[in-house]
Structures are given as structure tokens and as C-alpha cells.
Amino acid sequence: MADPTREAVLRALAELWANGCPVPAPELRERLADVGLRRWRSVARRHRGRRLSPDQRVQDLVRGLVAAFEPDRALVGRLVRDYECVARAIADVVTSTEG
């Protein structure tokens, strides 16, 4: 059974790619969606006792994506802005489809 949220995330990532964002390349989209959704959904377990604001959750997602896709986080530099776009797209989809 297909996960409608995951499918919506994949569409959002394809749109980002079409608009020039270099991070969600076609060969990375499936993994980006899986890592992003897992990270988003596990925030309560990783931040026990803390309620993060929406912006803090997006930044947490950015950290998770960078950790999963970049071998040396110190070298990410300005590319982090592109990861922020990906994280924002994932967050927007999840909040609109899962409530």
C-alpha cells in the first residue's frame, strides 16, 4: 500500500529539482523522502520532554538530512540553504497531509 504522504513528498522534491534546487536529484529522491519522513516522525523520541517550534523542527530535519547525505558536514557551506528548502518542502507536505 502506497503512503500518500511519501508520494506527496516525492512530488514536492521533483518540483524543487525542476525549479533548480540541486539537492533532490532524481537518484536521491526516494532516500531523501524516507530519511526526511523518518526524521520528522521521530522528533518526539529524540527530543523527549521538549516541544520544538515549527522552525526548530525544520532545522532538526536539516541537520538529519545533512548528516545522512553529506560525508563531511563541515564542508556543506552554502549548500545548507538547499537542504533547508528540501526540509521546508517535506515539513509543508507532512503538516498538510498528516495534520
Rank of each mutant, 00 (worst) to 15 (best):
S96M: 04
R73C: 07
R39C: 13
V80K: 09
S96P: 08
A89H: 04
G77R: 08
V76D: 02
E98D: 09
A18H: 13
A67G: 10
F69A: 06
A12N: 08
D34W: 03
D60N: 10
A44V: 10
L75H: 15
R29Q: 15
A18I: 09
P71N: 04
Y83D: 10
V66P: 07
E84N: 06
V94Q: 05
A89W: 10
L52K: 07
R50I: 07
A33C: 11
L65T: 10
R50E: 11
V9G: 06
A44S: 13
V66A: 08
P26A: 13
D3Y: 10
P26E: 12
I90F: 12
I90D: 10
Q59D: 15
V80G: 09
R78D: 14
V35F: 02
R73Y: 07
G49R: 10
L32E: 08
P71L: 12
L79I: 13
F69V: 05
P26I: 00
A87F: 01
V43Y: 03
Q59G: 07
V43G: 03
L79N: 05
D60T: 09
V93C: 13
R31N: 13
P26Q: 15
P26L: 07
V43L: 04
W40D: 00
A33L: 10
H47C: 05
V94W: 01
A2M: 12
R6K: 14
R11S: 14
R73L: 12
A33R: 04
V66C: 09
L65E: 05
R38A: 14
R31Y: 15
G99N: 03
V94F: 02
P54K: 14
D60Y: 12
R57P: 01
L28V: 01
A68W: 01
E7K: 15
R73S: 11
A25S: 15
D92I: 09
A18L: 13
E30D: 14
L52G: 00
V62C: 03
A14L: 15
T97D: 12
T5P: 00
L61H: 03
P54S: 02
R6N: 13
L13D: 00
L16R: 02
S42C: 11
L65V: 01
Q56M: 08
L10V: 15
G20M: 09
L61I: 04
G36A: 07
V58E: 08
R57C: 03
R46E: 01
W40S: 07
R31P: 09
R29L: 05
T97R: 08
R57W: 05
G99Q: 04
R39P: 06
A8L: 06
G20W: 13
S53G: 04
T97M: 15
Y83M: 02
L32T: 03
I90K: 06
A74Q: 04
L75V: 06
E30Y: 03
V35N: 07
L16Q: 03
G36M: 01
C85G: 12
R57H: 01
G36Q: 04
D3W: 12
M1V: 15
S53F: 02
L28H: 12
V58T: 01
L37I: 04
A14K: 13
V58H: 02
P22L: 01
A2N: 14
S53A: 00
A68R: 02
R81T: 00
P54D: 12
R41D: 04
E98P: 01
L79M: 14
A74P: 02
V43S: 04
V9C: 12
A87H: 13
P4C: 02
R78C: 15
R78T: 10
R29D: 11
G77A: 12
A8F: 12
A18S: 14
A44R: 11
C85A: 13
